[in-house]
């Protein structure tokens, strides 16, 4: 049981959860963001299920210094809300609304072998690299 194996297994479980939740279908995510017309509230249940499952464990484990595999635990520090978080979240929401894909489902979408999924993923990688080079 090493770090690489656990990472792979965690990814597989996450991907299966995404498919079962229905969030691998962009149409369903657009339905959630479409509050004015034919709203589909399912995404709230996905996030709620994830938060209620992970939250108590993360709380219990929050003061641990090393993980089960012996890695140093570095949780994000409490910090003041800054303009980067606000602007970044705003831009992410616009991109999310344009297509209905956020990073997890965008990567999982490769399993469909739809060429559009590959174009989205390459564009997303370009955005990540642009941020890395523009904003220090």
């Amino acid at each position: 049981m090493n770090d690489k194996f656990i990472s792979l297994i965690s990814g597989v479980i996450f991907g299966i959860g995404l498919v079962i939740s229905g969030m691998t279908n962009p149409e369903k995510v657009i339905g959630f963001l479409s509050i004015a017309h034919n709203w589909d509230a399912s995404l709230i249940f996905v996030m709620g299920g994830g938060i209620l499952t992970a939250g108590p464990f993360l709380f219990l484990l929050k003061n641990k210094e090393t993980s089960a595999l012996g890695n140093q635990i570095n949780l994000p520090k409490k910090q003041k809300l800054d303009s980067k978080t606000i602007i970044g979240a705003s831009l992410f929401g616009v991109g999310w609304g344009l297509v209905g894909l956020c990073p997890g489902p965008a990567i999982a979408a490769i399993a469909t072998l739809d060429p559009i999924a590959f174009v989205f993923l390459i564009s997303m990688a370009a955005g990540v690299l642009a941020k890395k080079n523009i904003v220090k």
Partner: peptide, 26 residues
């Protein structure tokens, strides 16, 4: 199109992945 049961089950599975990953790798 509302599918609360599968959404909740999928969300719990995603949560379990978060727990396994954090517990093991930190």
């Amino acid at each position: 199109n509302f599918t609360p049961v599968s959404a909740l089950i999928g969300g719990v599975i995603i949560g379990l992945s978060v727990v396994l990953y954090f517990y093991s790798t930190g």
